[in-house]
């Protein structure tokens, strides 16, 4: 016959095991994007938030330097830093032509636009330096220095996220694609109309 102490010990033990299992499940859940993706052994951090989904969107404010941390999940402080890959490529939801010294190019075929983002790559983080008045014109001009680049004025239309930041682990087993929009910092909002009067009338 079990004593009260034995029973309590068993109950506590079961609770601990369950808590342990719950903790493990929570960690797996988080690093698999809700069990929808493979377990992430590599991830990106921005502004204190871990990016663990392979495809996401982000707004970058121009005139700022944006720092992204890169982490290998099972690495410790003493681990040898592993390399990673980072680049910015076009994300043409609505493609357009632009010209370089009069020669036409298709935006979606533009390979690497990283030069426009002032990439500063370090072992455990990288930075994107976005100048003031950043635009598609600026970005493409940066890719063709010394040449005359002409981007149509309507190029921005329909392209809410014109760029994609691609960050991958050293062996490219984990790849994050972050669609980027670049613009000014929000300074206010208004609502139109300010007043609505529902009358129930129809004519």
């Amino acid at each position: 016959m079990q004593s009260k102490g034995q029973t309590a010990a068993k109950v506590i033990g079961v609770i601990l095991v369950l808590a342990l299992l719950a903790g493990i499940v929570a960690v797996i859940y988080r690093f698999t994007n809700g069990f929808n993706e493979d377990f992430k052994t590599f991830y990106v951090e921005y502004d204190g938030e871990q990016i663990l989904t392979t495809e996401s969107e982000m707004h970058l404010v121009e005139g700022n330097t944006h720092r992204f941390g890169v982490k290998y999940t099972f690495d410790t402080e003493n681990s040898e830093p592993k390399d990673y890959n980072v680049k910015v490529i076009p994300n043409a939801e609505r493609d357009f032509d632009f010209t370089v010294d009069g020669e036409r190019y298709l935006y979606s075929k533009e390979g690497d636009m990283t030069a426009a983002f002032g990439l500063n790559k370090q072992d455990t983080y990288f930075e994107l330096v976005i100048p003031e008045d950043f635009s598609l014109q600026y970005a493409l001009q940066s890719c063709y220095p010394g040449q005359t680049v002409v981007v149509p004025s309507e190029a921005e239309n329909g392209n809410a996220y014109p760029y994609t930041l691609v960050v991958s682990s050293y062996n490219e087993s984990v790849v994050y694609r972050i669609d980027l929009s670049v613009g000014a910092e929000v300074t206010g909002v208004t609502l139109d109309p300010e007043q609505i009067i529902f009358t129930g009338t129809q004519e």
């Binding site: 121009e62 613009g183 000014a184 910092e185 206010g188 909002v189």
Partner: peptide, 11 residues
């Protein structure tokens, strides 16, 4: 409709 300022706001 809400209008976020400035017009060129990223977010």
């Amino acid at each position: 409709e809400a209008y976020v300022y400035p017009e060129s706001a990223a977010n």
